[in-house]
Design a binder for these strands. Structure first.
Lengths: 161, 161
DNA sequence: TTAGATGCAAATAGTTTGCATTTGT
DNA sequence: ACAAATGCAAACTATTTGCATCTAA
């Protein structure tokens, strides 16, 4: 875990800002960084419980709020459920793709969005500390499955959507 | 209202997909399109009530879910509260900036992000239907207010944050 | 006419808060 | 040592669901 740059950096930030490095905070951040997919508070609670059953729900919410305030993580919303928390990259960047059909989340690593954002923040006189880009549509496997269906019904019917 | 392109397009989509054009749905979409800022379900409920007190909470949630499914709107999350619903542009684009200090939301209109996204979707074999870009940091007025404070305390104290 | 949508109220999540106790510095 | 953080349980808020009624097509 110590070799996880996001984890170390996160803890350092907590410390630097004058907050205590408590067990609850460390465990929550560990869970977030290890499973660096998108977790809901309920999922985080489950993982945290496995490591330390003593930690309660309230502490998890308090940790998540703190991390959000410090821009270590960011809550995002998709498919109208409860928020998912994601760990931001060192430059405050995060981008992912969500498939409308299978709800799969694909992380987008390589992305030159910072170039655009530099211009934008200059234009509006904004100081940028981070961003989340959420792209949605249809993923490769769902797309090809659709084509298959199209092929099957050629000459017999057209798909409505 | 009829001249609001997002509103008309939204209703058309509802109709085209075989859903009824009911009073509740029309009112909710009107509210969303007129106040095209970010509204929570509670705020939407208030506005809707003003126009038609008969409409209940459940219908609002059901309308929001439908609109989300049809990519007419998108729920987003910021400052760890309940989701805010935003109306997407015709090309599925939406971008905004959120000030960490005053929570102000600034819409970003001019944005060439679609260029980047085109490349990305080709790379991953994704079909893109829309996106939300959420940038956060410090806005112009909060930024200059900070400088003012810095100036005021020069020589007497340093600010912790 | 009738399947689909609504409004209500009750049920169910999801999150926050108060407070006595514990813990990191 | 002691302010800050925790865990618990209760309070609160947000959302969903069942069902009788209504309404758009």
């Amino acid at each position: 875990m110590k070799d996880n740059i996001l984890y170390s950096r996160g803890l350092q930030k907590v410390k630097d800002c004058g907050y205590k490095l408590t067990g609850a905070r460390q465990t929550v951040l560990q869970v977030l960084c290890e499973n660096h997919i998108h977790l809901t508070s309920a999922e985080i609670y489950q993982y945290v419980k496995e490591r330390n059953p003593k930690i309660g729900r309230a502490s998890i919410f308090r940790a998540l709020d703190l991390f959000t305030e410090l821009s270590i993580i960011r809550p995002t919303y998709y498919e109208a459920q409860s928020p998912h928390y994601i760990v931001l990259a060192e430059d405050g960047h995060h981008a992912h793709f969500i498939c409308n059909q299978c709800d799969r989340v694909i992380e987008i690593e390589e992305c030159q969005i910072n170039n655009i954002l530099g211009e934008l923040s200059a234009l509006h006189n904004l100081t940028m500390t981070g961003h989340v880009l959420e792209v949605y549509g249809v993923c490769e496997s769902c797309g090809s499955r659709d084509k298959q269906i199209d092929y099957d019904v050629v000459g017999s019917a057209t798909r409505s959507n």
